[in-house]
Design a protein around this nucleic acid. Structure first.
Length: 943
RNA sequence: GCCUGAGUGGUGGAAUUGGUAGACGCGUUGGACUCAAAAUCCAAUGGUAGCAAUACCGUGUCGGUUCAAGUCCGACCUCAGGCACCA
């Protein structure tokens, strides 16, 4: 509707002219700082997904202003990095030109939404005035020894011709283009982010991030507490240190594994007798990508190192050493002690290579009691392959369905015992032993004997060969006690409830390592302990006392690879001098700007395009003045976004990245919205960067963000992802043209739970336009009254309360719904007052700012809404005098009735029992009790 | 495999934290207005049976706690996201 277009343009201009949303750095009001992650101004333009979070934060910001806060709600552009560069290469435009164009389009689109952004603080990360300070801050890292250059095996995308961080190459494919990633060795600038691992975990306590974001970060940092244990190599007497989180299982170590790259191999190549075999394994491992190597479901491979023998420091036992690629050189010490009984991977490896498995933890079932008698016993499962059934004994009331079980006689092995019991109880004799499982420590109480037992039970699996049977000799009364039955797996899972028997059955079918708590066995000093924590603690103390190892915490978080061999990034402001090494560019010479070049495409050899520009590369050493060369790598695109929220506080300061006063006044970012995909990357980098600045006295807060929220994605109609190839991409511009910005905003807020993904529906959008049309039409009903219409007073107060709370809690969908309900009530009236109408417009203003301002002005209802105060409500007026409540009989609703607020319980009871349909359901029955929950429900219990 | 979430009509989604399940919107059906269409307005709309009053069933599945369960507990299934040979 062109009317709406005109209205929108009018108000957008007015806000700009009147500087309505320019934040004041010198205000005495309380501050509040909202931010949406700044966008890449890509050529594709604005997406309806952008509109969702922009509108949401805009609504919050607008409401907060009406609540009397000094609100900062800025926006800028994250225009460095691969996306902008790829776009530029594709369209054969210089990145800086392309970026300028894209920003213009993008900004126009964003503006048409009518956001209350303070555009005076706008900047792009590609502005030299901005990246001057990115470079300046990088030099602080460099100064403090936090940046270093290292040869790194990096993830290389041959398609983008670019090195990628681990974060950018998860799953073994390039985040950007989907091409699979190769390994390449490169000298790279690194930031010591791993030094901050602990602080990054601890700092989360000072934030209000959603739990899912906190967990994602904690997982990513990957803290694990354990120990380094000094194993010895028998032949050379050197230490082979391993890292383990389970020192409690040390007695169960039956072999060791080192990573293929482990230096012990090269060091001892003269005494290792199978170096050829080992070298070819190493080569094979090297050629595998990180992704292939870290595939979980891959078969275990490895080679035994002939000529080196490990010695367990606790048991002094000699054990073999293997190399295998399931051990990583870059984590822990690159060597592990293997405990196949209690680690899945070691279990798999041991089974494949035929290595001993020694259990040191017994699974416990049942409940331990005092004064237990000890017994050894077996549980035998007999499998009939032909019919896919298992042999069970149905004891009926005496114990339900069980397998064959029994107590071992003196000197009887578990196998002998099992064969005997099967024969005695069921008669089957033609059976073959398959395998057994680790003993289980079971506790039970025999009521008939009035005695508690602790048994060590071995589970054994047999296969039935034929139905050959011997006669079972049973007493008459025994015969009636149980039935021998063949049943299938489903029935067993349902009917076998005895913990020992069902656990045995499951373990027999799927033998695995046992990793949970249990009773320590075969472990000398630990024997008898039943708690993992205690066992670990005891072993740690022992190791430390005897100098055999020490406590150690490890993190998965690696240092941040900070170089890119690309053109379109902030140049790393360092110079390499033959005599002085790496030297920082003087502050006065910042920014180091990008040269004007013709060819900005990346090179095949992986060098930055900058390296070819000799004029730019050749410079003088800032320290000694001799000829020197500039670093030609640039920063990753994460750099510019690692501190940008600080710049908004004082966006055009050319003396500092932001003044101390501004940093202090705006403080922490109160409310930060961004995609879930940035929960572990951008958000960690930004927190790390900020913590570093804080530790060096450059910012006043250690944690930069208070609250972090993520919006759900908007999918195409039908719930599929919007994509160009499917042709279901919705262009917000078209929607604004057709339905108006307010309708689009309203719909995106009404569409569903803000945090969940949701399917787009144009009909839904149309519904919101109808709602707005209705608001306009209802202006005809305006009377000159200046107080609330009496009939509407209660619902207006309720709606103010609801909308206030809902917007504060980001429950925009129910806020809009409450306004729809209120409008429906207005429609039922012949006339509504100016106050009725203005209150409605105020409440709807954060979501639909243009039309509400227009109507407010048209009917001369008062001051501009964005300059007015948020409406208040009277709690007393939100309480109903009369209420309809349900009357249940035995929990089923049989009638409803109206009660007034002060009616007492007896009266309500009486009224309820007199209701016709209640009588129908209570007559001929005894009324046991009547439950009255005031103002809610009556439930009559009858028999 | 582990860690988060989440499963409610034809559909997007509500449900005061244990108290009338399906608010509000969309769609659908019928009606009004109109020469007609659009727009607008009115009515109905979880399923089954019934003219109706009403009854039974119904929030992924199975079980439990409770006067009362979408909501709490236990087991499982499915989907989405994150992590993943990290010792």
């Amino acid at each position: 509707m062109s009317d709406y277009k005109k209205i929108e343009a009018k108000w957008q201009k007015k806000w700009e002219d009147e500087k309505s949303f320019v934040a004041d750095n010198n205000s005495t009001k309380e501050k509040y700082y909202y931010l949406v992650e700044f966008p890449y101004p890509s050529g594709a333009g604005l997406h309806v997904g952008h509109c969702r979070s922009y509108t949401a934060l805009d609504a919050l910001a607008r409401k907060k202003r009406m609540n009397g806060y000094n609100v900062l709600f800025p926006m800028g552009w994250d225009a460095f990095g691969a996306p902008a560069e790829q776009y530029a290469i594709k369209n054969h435009i210089h990145p800086s030109v392309a970026v300028k164009e894209n920003i213009k389009t993008f900004k126009g689109q964003v503006k048409s939404l009518g956001l209350s952004i303070d555009w005076t603080r706008e900047f792009s990360t590609t502005d030299p005035e901005y990246y001057k300070w990115t470079q300046w801050q990088f030099l602080k890292f460099f100064e403090k020894g936090m940046a270093y250059k290292a040869k790194k095996n990096i993830n290389w995308c041959p398609n983008c011709k670019m090195g990628l961080s681990n974060e950018d190459s998860s799953g073994g494919v390039c985040e950007r283009c989907g091409h699979s990633v190769e390994q390449r060795e490169k000298e790279q600038w690194m930031l010591r982010m791993s030094d901050y691992a602990e602080d990054l975990i601890k700092g989360l306590d000072d934030t209000d991030f959603q739990e899912r974001i906190k967990t994602a970060q904690i997982n990513w940092i990957g803290k694990s507490e354990g120990a380094e244990v000094n194993f010895k190599v028998k032949e050379t007497n050197e230490d082979l240190v391993v890292y383990t989180t389970r020192p409690d299982t040390l007695y169960g170590v039956t072999f060791m594994v080192v990573a293929p790259e482990h230096p012990i191999i090269e060091k001892n190549k003269n005494i290792i007798s199978n170096m050829d075999e080992i070298n070819s394994y190493k080569d094979a491992a090297k050629n595998k990508t990180e992704f292939e190597r870290t595939q979980v479901n891959k078969d275990k491979t490895g080679v035994k190192i002939e000529g080196l023998t490990g010695i367990n420091p606790i048991t002094k036992k000699e054990i073999p050493i293997y190399i295998s690629d399931y051990v990583m050189m870059n984590y822990g010490t690159g060597a592990i002690m293997a405990v196949p009984a209690h680690d899945e991977r070691d279990f798999e490896f041991a089974n494949k290579f035929g290595i001993d498995i020694i259990p040191v933890i017994e699974q416990i079932t049942g409940t331990p009691r005092d004064d237990e008698k000890k017994k050894n016993s077996i549980v035998a499962v007999l499998f009939d392959e032909e019919n896919n059934k298992y042999l069970t004994i149905n004891w009926g009331n005496l114990g339900g369905r069980l397998f064959v079980g029994g107590t071992r006689k003196d000197n009887e092995s578990p196998l002998e015992c099992a064969i005997r019991e099967i024969k005695e109880e069921t008669g089957y004799t033609d059976i073959t032993y398959m395998h057994d499982i680790f003993p289980i420590n079971h506790h039970y109480y025999a009521h008939n004997k009035n005695q508690a037992y602790e048994i060590e039970s071995t589970g054994l699996l047999f296969k039935l060969n034929s139905n050959k049977k011997v006669e079972v000799e049973l007493d008459d009364d025994e015969k009636d006690n149980f039935k021998v039955e063949w049943v299938d797996k489903n029935k067993i899972e349902k009917e076998v409830v005895d913990e020992l028997h069902i656990t045995t059955f499951r373990n027999l079918l799927k033998p695995t390592a046992y990793i949970a708590d249990g009773k320590m066995v075969n472990s000398d000093i630990l024997n008898g302990l039943t708690n993992k924590k205690d066992s670990i603690e005891k072993m740690l103390e022992y190791l430390e006392e005897n100098n055999l190892g020490k406590r150690k915490t490890n993190y998965k978080l690696q240092d941040w690879i900070f170089s890119r061999q690309r053109f379109w990034g902030e140049p790393i402001p360092l110079v390499h001098c033959k005599d002085c090494g790496w030297v920082a560019v003087d502050d006065k010479d910042l920014p180091v700007t990008l040269p004007e070049v013709v060819n900005y495409e990346p090179t095949d050899d992986g060098e930055s395009p900058l390296a070819a520009i000799t004029d730019w590369v050749n410079t003088t050493c800032p320290k000694c003045g001799n000829p020197a060369k500039r670093e030609t790598d640039t920063m990753p695109n994460w750099a510019g976004s690692s501190w940008y929220w600080l710049r908004y506080m004082d966006a055009h300061n050319d003396k500092e990245f932001a003044s101390k006063d501004a940093l202090k006044y705006w403080g922490k970012l109160d409310f930060y919205n961004g995609g879930m995909e940035h929960a572990t990357r951008h958000l960690l980098y930004a927190r790390f960067w900020n913590q570093f600045l804080y530790n060096n006295g450059l910012v006043p807060n250690k944690e930069p963000f208070k609250t972090r929220v993520s919006h759900g994605m908007i999918l195409g109609e039908g719930g599929v992802k919007m994509s160009k190839s499917l042709g279901n991409v919705i262009n917000p511009n078209d929607m604004i043209k057709e339905y108006g910005a307010d309708a689009l905003r309203c719909y995106e807020m009404f569409i569903g739970d803000y945090e969940k993904e949701v399917a787009w529906s144009e009909q839904g959008l149309n519904g919101c336009k109808r709602f707005i049309d209705k608001i306009v039409r209802i202006g005809d009903k305006l009377s000159n009254d200046t107080s609330y219409t009496k009939e509407l007073e209660s619902i207006i107060h309720k709606t103010i309360k609801k909308v206030t709370e809902d917007i504060d809690n980001m429950k925009f969908n129910t806020a809009v719904s409450a306004l729809m309900i209120l409008l429906n009530k207005y429609e039922e009236q012949d006339k509504i007052t100016k106050k009725d109408y203005r209150t409605f417009l105020l409440l709807f203003n954060p979501i639909a700012p243009h039309i509400t301002e227009e109507l407010n002005e048209k009917y001369d209802l008062g001051e501009q809404l964005c300059k007015s105060s948020w409406p208040t409500y009277d709690d007393e007026k939100t309480i109903d005098e009369e209420k309809e409540i349900a009357v249940q009989v035995n929990g089923k609703v049989r009638a409803t009735m109206k009660i007034s607020i002060n009616e007492d319980e007896e009266e309500i009871k009486k009224k309820a029992l007199a209701l016709e349909n209640v009588i129908n359901h209570t007559k001929d029955k005894e009324i046991i009790k009547v439950i009255v929950i005031k103002g809610k429900i009556v439930n009559i219990v009858v028999k």
